[in-house]
């Protein structure tokens, strides 16, 4: 494991996250059954499957909201080496391991402005720079420059995601598609190594969804971020994914590149049922 962050392009494909035999049970219900998966940096990995297949549960296990019953989630961090996410307090998953997620039912800070949402995301860095408020209270230079840097970063992502005009608007007043973009921008402000997006295309119109495709490719190719995507919109999944994992009733039923998945008989069966084999819905 190298100790420095090497430039993006030649790092693509390096193993980032390793999920080993992950099982999650709620009482008698097995939501995830012995799931293993490898997620590389600089690539887009998608998790698909019918409703209730365990996709969001998988995210919750990954990001520390649930403690998995058995199994390990290992993050290969370029600085800290391998980290076991399932043994960390939930906020460390984002702070230390650099795994940041968005939510299926958007969770913004609705009464705060878009810009404030993005500043909150940089809380840890800013808090350190403000010496836990003491330096900040007296307006010392170190804190001021950290604050400038935070604003600059927020500004960069606001620009990239076309949110600049509404930066001073309360986030809760904006349209659904915009809120999705804000949530992604906010996650990016944490500087994640791995970005976990839970149905980012849900509720987007075709143009917004095309922009999302472009953004995801940009993030993985140009910024070498690992992207883990839960999505129902096959227009997004099939166009951008490098690797797809299909879940059904908590089990992994297929894995491969988009072409392989589209022709996998088990996948077709899971989506359409036993009898009909209609190609175009897969």
């Amino acid at each position: 494991m190298s100790n420095t962050l090497t430039p993006a392009a030649n790092q693509g494909g390096k193993l980032l996250l390793e999920v080993e035999h992950l099982t999650m049970r709620f009482g008698g219900l097995t939501a995830l059954n012995d799931l293993s998966l490898a997620v590389p940096a600089g690539k887009i990995t998608s998790i698909i499957g019918p409703n209730g297949a365990g996709k969001t549960t998988f995210f919750n296990c990954l990001t520390g909201f649930y403690k998995p019953t058995t199994g390990n989630v290992r993050m290969h961090h370029p600085q800290y080496g391998p980290l076991l996410l399932n043994q960390m307090p939930s906020y460390h998953v984002a702070r230390k391991a650099g795994v940041v997620r968005t939510f299926q039912n958007i969770r913004l800070f609705p009464n705060m402005t878009v810009l404030e949402n993005l500043i909150v995301a940089q809380h840890n860095a800013l808090q350190r720079a403000s010496r836990f408020s003491i330096a900040g209270l007296f307006g010392q230079a170190g804190y001021k420059s950290a604050r400038e840097a935070a604003l600059a970063k927020a500004l960069m992502w606001l620009t990239r995601l076309k949110l600049l005009d509404i930066a001073d608007t309360a986030a809760g007043n904006l349209s659904y598609g915009t809120q999705r973009r804000i949530e992604i921008a906010r996650a990016l402000c944490v500087d994640p190594l791995l970005l976990c997006l839970d149905e980012p295309a849900a509720g987007l119109n075709p143009r917004e969804s095309a922009e999302l495709n472009e953004l995801l490719l940009y993030l993985s190719r140009e910024h070498n971020k690992g992207v883990l995507l839960i999505e129902h919109d096959m227009n997004v999944v099939m166009r951008v994914s490098d690797h797809i994992c299909v879940l059904n009733f908590g089990n992994k039923i297929a894995e491969g590149n988009p072409a392989q998945i589209q022709n996998d008989p088990d996948v077709i069966k899971a989506y359409l049922g036993e009898d009909e084999t209609d190609q175009e819905a897969a």
Partner: peptide
């Protein structure tokens, strides 16, 4: 008024708005 503009003050309001989101952003709620 000062604290409110510092990271800790903004974080207070963020926690009021959505604790889960704060956790997901790596904040020690």
């Amino acid at each position: 008024a000062r604290l409110r503009k510092l990271p800790v003050g903004i974080a207070w309001e963020a926690v009021r708005e959505d604790e889960v989101a704060c956790k997901a952003l790596g904040m020690n709620v």
